Amino acid sequence: MNELLVGIVGFGYTGRLHLAACRQLPGVRVVAVADNSAEALSQVPSDLKTFRDYRDLLALDIDIVNICLPTAAHAAAACNALRARKHVLVEKPIATTTADARLMMEEAKEAGCLLYTGMTHRFYPEIREAKKRVEEGQIGDVVLIRDSIFESLGFLGGPAWYRSKALAGGGTVLSSGVHLVDRVLWFAGRVPVSVSGFTSNAILGGEVEDSAQMCLGFDGSCFAQITFGWLRESHPLLCDLELTGTRGSLVVHTWQGYEHRSARGVQQYTIYKSESHQEKVLVGLRGEILEFCTAVREGREPWPCVRETNRALRVVEAFYEAAQTGAVVALKGTL
């Protein structure tokens, strides 16, 4: 197995997790980290090269650039890395706008390099097992989906840029919430035709939404409702996906396990035992990084492809329009 050399751009909470995940994978070696913060670089292990300007990192002979910057900085950093002929893994969301995402995809095509958005939820075992049961028809046709996430910003160390419109592009819906939109589309197995909903910043105040309710319509055969919330006070992290089908239902408690409900009763499946939350997150990170590195080695498109995951950003973009105007926004033909 040829060793792939990786450079990480951005060494906050997420960048540190990406380093930990890479170091747990065979044939993957992080050789350098870039961050414009001297304090962040002081936490980088001494065996790695460090740079204050990520463009200096791009001059290295590396295969992959892993971008863990505030969302508004993704497009410029990714495009520069692609022009330097590096494969690029960028943290979700891919960008703050679909226009920037398209630019990134065009640069990847021009460079002949891979561009990939990290969607850890696609790789959590509780999510994948539930998806397999849906695909096997164990709950029949999915007709209703409900998803939700409630998290305290203090849980992630409360990075200040999360609440900056200029740096984050949005609030709870665009940050962690884009995972929920992506997995709802994945489980629905089709693209939505409309989106509507509401946003509020009544919990924390500030420039971006801290709570929201999204409704998605899928050609009248399936509907989805997603609830998002940031909480001020300390609170357990909740992230629950409920799928109702014509023959039963599934409830996924992310980072815990899932339940299969049918005429035979309720079957409960516990995935994790005493692992810390960070250890659970690393399961998804290892999965996405391994998939990307395997795609680089095999010269194929990684799963899920960037065009598919970009649909979630388009839905979020349309949702913000719906929340601002109070209208139902049509999505048919735009995804």
Rank of each mutant, 00 (worst) to 15 (best):
Ala168Arg: 07
Ala168Lys: 04
Ala168Tyr: 04
Ala168His: 05
Ala168Glu: 02
Gly169Arg: 07
Gly170Lys: 10
Gly170Trp: 07
Gly171Cys: 14
Gly171Ala: 15
Gly171Pro: 07
Gly171Leu: 11
Gly171Ile: 10
Thr172Trp: 11
Thr172Lys: 09
Thr172Met: 14
Val173Gln: 03
Val173Cys: 15
Leu174Cys: 08
Leu174Gly: 05
Leu174Trp: 02
Ser175Arg: 14
Ser176Thr: 11
Ser176Pro: 02
Gly177Cys: 15
Gly177His: 09
Gly177Lys: 15
Val178Pro: 10
His179Gly: 04
His179Lys: 14
Val181Gly: 02
Asp182Trp: 14
Asp182Met: 05
Val184Leu: 07
Val184Pro: 07
Leu185Thr: 02
Leu185Ile: 06
Trp186Ser: 13
Phe187Cys: 13
Phe187Thr: 12
Gly189Thr: 14
Gly189His: 12
Arg190Leu: 06
Val191Ser: 15
Pro192His: 04
Pro192Asn: 07
Val193Ser: 15
Ser194Arg: 10
Ser194Gln: 06
Ser194Ile: 01
Val195Leu: 04
Ser196Gly: 15
Gly197Tyr: 07
Gly197Lys: 05
Phe198Asn: 07
Phe198Ser: 10
Phe198Ile: 09
Ser200Asp: 03
Asn201Phe: 05
Ala202Pro: 00
Ala202Arg: 13
Ala202Ile: 00
Ile203Tyr: 08
Leu204Gln: 06
Leu204Ala: 00
Gly205Asn: 05
Gly205Val: 06
Val208His: 00
Glu209Lys: 09
Glu209Asn: 12
Glu209Ile: 06
Asp210Ile: 01
Asp210Arg: 04
Asp210Gln: 00
Ser211Lys: 08
Ser211Asn: 06
Ser211Trp: 00
Ser211Asp: 04
Ser211Arg: 10
Ala212Arg: 08
Ala212Lys: 12
Gln213Ile: 04
Gln213Thr: 08
Met214Ser: 01
Met214Asp: 00
Cys215Gly: 09
Cys215Asp: 13
Gly217Asn: 05
Gly217Arg: 03
Gly217Thr: 01
Phe218Arg: 03
Phe218Val: 03
Phe218Trp: 12
Asp219Gly: 10
Asp219Cys: 06
Asp219Gln: 12
Gly220Trp: 08
Ser221Gly: 03
Ser221Asn: 01
Cys222Arg: 02
Cys222Gly: 06
Cys222Met: 06
Phe223Glu: 11
Phe223Gly: 15
Phe223Asp: 12
Phe223Ala: 11
Ala224Arg: 02
Ala224Gly: 07
Gln225Val: 14
